[in-house]
């Protein structure tokens, strides 16, 4: 599902964020990207949803070579990828329903179908009673679940999460981890960048460690 071949990324000429990354994530797998701050976790995730294009090397997502895509093709790739962040990135002046609905509006769904689908996913997240609340009235854990609902509402092939539990307490971390696992069970390939050791230990999933822009631990190191 995800393949990176000898990927280099330099922000400026001097600063190289990623050094020759080789990574292969099969369809339906769940991996953790881990490593200290500045190791290149977020940069790697940004390559996966085509917010960055590598300076060298190839990034292939779901059979499509991102490095060869035109700017107008990228939105269509992103429709099969859900992304969540540490800071949730919810729109504060829109309701939970409207925040989650954005994903389906972009796909051109009709209002009634959107309402049904959003209610369904919020129910899975245990948030159906907050459907008309604005994000500022929700706790951190609830906000992250709304963000996850937005990412998962169109059943994406890939779910990317950048420090998704960074702002949450232990109870909410477990809740979020279970949502990731559920999505993974339903077939979504999940990549979670985190340096939360407890989260990683509890999950028993494959771990890829990054340091200074290189993979230092994991099955792909030898390649």
């Amino acid at each position: 599902m995800i393949q990176l071949h000898n990927v280099f990324l330099s922000y400026q000429k001097e600063v190289t964020a990623l050094h020759g990354i080789n990574l292969r994530v099969p369809r339906g797998e769940f991996i953790f990207l881990t490593g200290p701050s500045g190791a290149g976790k977020s940069t790697l995730l940004r390559l996966l949803y085509a917010a960055l294009i590598p300076t060298r090397g190839q990034v292939v997502i779901d059979g499509q070579n991102v490095t060869r895509m035109t700017r107008s093709q990228i939105p269509y790739l992103r429709r099969s990828i859900g992304v969540v962040f540490q800071d949730f990135k919810l729109l504060p002046n829109r309701t939970v329903l409207e925040n989650v609905a954005i994903t389906l509006e972009v796909l051109g769904w009709g209002k009634q179908d959107i309402n049904k689908k959003v209610y369904h996913i919020l129910k899975q997240m245990g948030l159906e009673h907050k459907i008309n609340a604005t994000p500022l009235r929700l706790s951190g854990g609830e906000q992250q679940r709304v963000a996850l609902a937005r990412a998962l509402v169109n059943d994406p092939k890939i779910l990317l999460a950048d420090e998704p539990t960074g702002n949450l307490d232990e109870e909410n971390k477990d809740l979020i981890l279970n949502i990731f696992k559920d999505a993974n069970i339903r077939g979504t390939t999940v990549v979670v960048a985190t340096h939360d050791k407890r989260l990683i230990e509890n999950s028993h999933k494959r771990i890829v460690s990054l340091d200074k822009g290189k993979i230092v631990e994991g099955p792909d190191v030898a390649q």
Binding site: G28, G108, W109, G110, K111, N154, D155, R186, G187, T188
Partner: peptide, 13 residues
């Protein structure tokens, strides 16, 4: 092999 049921895309509005 994806276990995801393909999203049943409703009629576009």
């Amino acid at each position: 092999m994806s276990l995801n049921k393909p999203v049943k895309r409703p009629k576009l509005a």
